[in-house]
């Protein structure tokens, strides 16, 4: 879907026109079918079969531990889900996590992109260091932050707090959601920086120069030239990040396990615990359907927003 953006820009669009029947090119196109179809068929199976199964299970009574629980459940699983306060908490947690990380990474990424577009000493190395966190696997980032950085006694934060004469904070006990947000933002800020920096660098610098000669100061240059130029790239960053952030799992799994209580249980973690800890297939599937709908709503709005921007 996000591809809608680029299809408009595809190079040499003209040769995509349908050739007359029986022509040489038409024959070639038909010969291409066996080349494309393996990918298409496999992706079709991959995207349809589990989806239909999730839908099916969500209307079934099905518990892996209790084989006597069987049969059609109607909307019981959904009913149970929406009357469960844990579900609403997890929904709010999901939105808080996605919203906060998006705000931090997009604003931070934009500012850093402008910074790393300026000429300075050792820029190449500094940039490489700055984007590195994106390549660290989620379980490593989570454990490094939990133990080496935010640990109240042995972590860097604890030591700094102590040095400043303050009472060390047990981050994961007192600010669990913020701790998760910090970890996830650290992973995704470099992503935003990497994408937005590429976009900034494609800006025609003569425009900035012209604005400068017209007396625009640095802040005006940023808001009237750089930011509008980045609009499309920012939309892309928001969309891609949202899709990944809606299913954040590993960072929560290895740090808080959804706790304390359900303070950091997002939708992904709730579904996981229903399915693989409580073995409630029906209930977990109902949650899965909600997750799919949520992702589709976000995708729909974002694609539309981007499409609109494109028509200009």
């Amino acid at each position: 879907m996000s591809a809608a953006l680029d299809v408009e820009n595809m190079p040499s669009q003209p040769h995509a026109v349908t050739p007359p029947p029986g022509s040489n090119e038409r024959r070639l196109q038909r010969r291409m079918l066996p080349l494309v179809s393996p990918s298409v068929v496999l992706l079709l199976i991959w995207s349809i079969v589990p989806l239909v199964m999730t839908l099916w299970f969500s209307f079934q009574r099905y518990n892996l531990l209790d084989p006597t629980v069987t049969g059609f459940a109607g909307i019981d699983n959904y009913d149970f889900l929406v009357t469960d306060p844990d579900f609403w908490t997890s929904l709010v947690n999901t939105l808080v996590l996605v919203g906060s990380v998006l705000a931090i990474t997009v604003v931070g990424g934009t500012l850093l992109a402008v910074l790393y577009d300026q000429p300075f000493l050792g820029k190449g190395i500094a940039r490489v260091l700055a984007i590195s966190p994106f390549f660290v696997m989620p379980t490593v980032s989570a454990l490094i932050w939990k133990n080496l950085m935010l640990h109240p006694i042995y972590g860097i934060a604890g030591i700094l707090w102590h040095a400043a004469g303050l009472q060390p904070v047990d981050w994961f006990a007192n600010y669990p959601m913020w701790s998760v947000i910090i970890i996830v933002s650290w992973e995704w800020l470099p992503f935003a920086l990497l994408i937005l920096l590429t976009a900034v660098q494609s800006l025609d610098h003569s425009q900035i120069e012209a604005a400068r000669l017209d007396g625009a100061n640095a802040i005006q240059q940023f808001f009237y030239i750089t930011l509008p130029h980045l609009g499309r790239a920012i939309s892309v960053v928001i969309m891609i990040e949202t899709i990944f952030l809606l299913s954040i799992f590993a960072e929560i799994f290895v740090t808080t396990a959804g706790g304390p209580g359900n303070a950091t249980t997002n939708l992904a973690f709730l579904i996981y615990s229903r399915a693989l800890l409580q073995f409630d297939v029906g209930g977990a599937s109902a949650g899965g359907v909600v997750a799919i709908i949520l992702a589709n709503i976000v995708a729909f709005f974002l694609v539309r927003a981007i499409g609109k921007r494109l028509d200009i």
């Binding site: 591809a3 990918s39 992706l43 199964m53 999730t54 899709i243 799992f249 899965g288 997750a291 799919i292």
Partner: peptide, 18 residues
């Protein structure tokens, strides 16, 4: 191409159970 891309929008957790 667009359809292929749209399959990436399916959250993995939605199909964890099946």
């Amino acid at each position: 191409l667009l359809w292929m891309l749209s399959t990436k929008m399916l959250p993995p957790v939605g199909v964890l159970v099946p």
